[in-house]
Deep mutational scan, measured.
Amino acid sequence: MTEYKLVVVGAGGVGKSALTIQLIQNHFVDEYDPTIEDSYRKQVVIDGETCLLDILDTAGQEEYSAMRDQYMRTGEGFLCVFAINNTKSFEDIHHYREQIKRVKDSEDVPMVLVGNKCDLPSRTVDTKQAQDLARSYGIPFIETSAKTRQGVDDAFYTLVREIRKHKEKMSKDGKKKKKKSKTKCVIM
């Protein structure tokens, strides 16, 4: 069974824990209790493949930012979460993405942009803004509501699919490099 290491990042209060708990335990946590770091595991079937999701729910508070490099190193894919009623959390996505790329030393890291709290009427981040940002990053965008469960499975499952595509691409690139290195030079 394939294991996928997913990391949920975003500013404090955007609903990272609520999304994760909704996926794992099928219930909505409405009281806000700032996370330092929590880890969850769940076995699911995605596109006919049974897999184990190892999900790291991270601290959004700035005082825990020193811990970010460590979990970013171990993560295979990242859910970059903002709240649709919090423009600052949307603007912060850029910083999370840049930090992930720096730590992973790669421009090509599996990510999904997630606009959470889409059940709320007080939207300050337009869907088109988020779609445009995701398009500019070359990553999928999904709106979710941890409260109603809308888009929750889709967000995590899409990230797994992005990781699969990335692994497939990397193995193809690896095979191309191996083929090239088999060419021999004969000096007579």
Rank of each mutant, 00 (worst) to 15 (best):
Q43R: 13
I55H: 04
D33N: 05
T2R: 14
D47L: 04
V8M: 07
S17D: 00
L6C: 07
A11W: 06
G60S: 08
A59C: 11
V29D: 14
G12K: 07
K5I: 02
D30M: 09
F28G: 02
L53T: 10
P34G: 03
L19C: 14
D47V: 04
S17P: 00
I36C: 06
E3N: 05
L52E: 15
Q22E: 13
V7W: 12
Y64E: 15
T20P: 03
K16G: 05
G13M: 10
L52D: 15
V14Q: 13
D33H: 04
L6Y: 05
T50E: 12
V7H: 15
E62Q: 11
T50S: 12
D54V: 03
A59R: 06
E63W: 04
C51D: 08
V8Y: 02
E31F: 06
I46A: 11
I21L: 12
S39G: 09
Q61Y: 08
K42M: 09
T58K: 02
K42Y: 08
I24K: 15
E31L: 07
T20H: 01
E63S: 10
L52S: 14
Q61E: 14
E3M: 08
P34Q: 06
K5D: 07
L23F: 12
Q61I: 09
Y40T: 01
E63R: 07
Q61C: 13
R41Y: 05
G12Y: 07
D30S: 12
E49L: 04
G15F: 00
I21H: 10
V29Y: 14
Q43D: 12
Q22N: 14
R41E: 03
V44T: 11
R41T: 12
Y4W: 07
C51F: 13
L19P: 00
L6W: 04
D33E: 11
V29Q: 09
V7R: 04
D38R: 00
V44E: 14
E37C: 03
V29E: 15
K5R: 12
G15N: 00
G15E: 00
L53M: 10
T2F: 10
D54W: 02
T35F: 00
G13I: 10
E63T: 08
C51L: 10
I24N: 15
K5W: 01
D57L: 00
E37G: 02
N26M: 07
E49R: 11
I46T: 11
G12M: 10
D30K: 12
G48E: 11
E62F: 08
Y64L: 10
V7N: 11
D47I: 02
T50M: 10
R41K: 07
Y4L: 12
L56V: 15
E3K: 08
L53F: 11
P34M: 07
T20Q: 05
Y40H: 02
H27I: 13
L56E: 15
V9T: 05
S39F: 04
L6D: 00
Q25I: 14
G10H: 00
V29I: 13
D33A: 05
G13Q: 11
I36P: 01
I24F: 15
G10L: 01
R41I: 07
S39N: 06
A59F: 02
D47N: 12
G15C: 00
C51M: 13
G12A: 10
L6I: 14
A11F: 14
S17W: 00
G12I: 05
A18I: 05
I21C: 08
G13F: 12
V14I: 14
I46N: 11
V7Q: 07
H27Y: 15
L19T: 15
T58W: 03
A11E: 10
K5Q: 07
V29W: 14
V8F: 03
V7P: 01
I55S: 07
L53R: 03
D30E: 12
H27M: 15
D57P: 01
E49A: 09
Y32W: 11
E3I: 06
L19Q: 15
P34K: 06
E62V: 08
F28H: 05
A59M: 06
H27D: 15
Q22V: 03
E49T: 11
V44G: 12
E62Y: 08
L23I: 09
D33L: 04
V29N: 09
G13D: 14
G60Y: 03
Q43H: 11
I46F: 09
I46G: 11
Q22K: 13
G48S: 09
E49N: 12
Y4D: 14
V29K: 03
V9P: 02
K16C: 05
T58S: 11
H27L: 15
L19V: 12
V14D: 12
Q61R: 08
R41S: 07
K5P: 12
V8G: 02
G48Q: 11
Q22T: 08
Q61P: 12
V44H: 12
Q22G: 12
S39A: 07
T50P: 14
D54L: 03
D30V: 09
L53W: 07
L53S: 07
I46H: 11
K42I: 10
T50D: 11
V45G: 13
E31R: 04
Q43A: 11
T50Y: 07
T20A: 11
T2V: 09
V7I: 14
E3F: 07
Y64C: 14
L23Q: 15
I24H: 12
D54P: 05
E63A: 06
A59E: 07
D57C: 01
I46V: 12
E62L: 08
I21N: 06
Y32R: 03
L23E: 15
G10I: 01
L19I: 13
H27P: 02
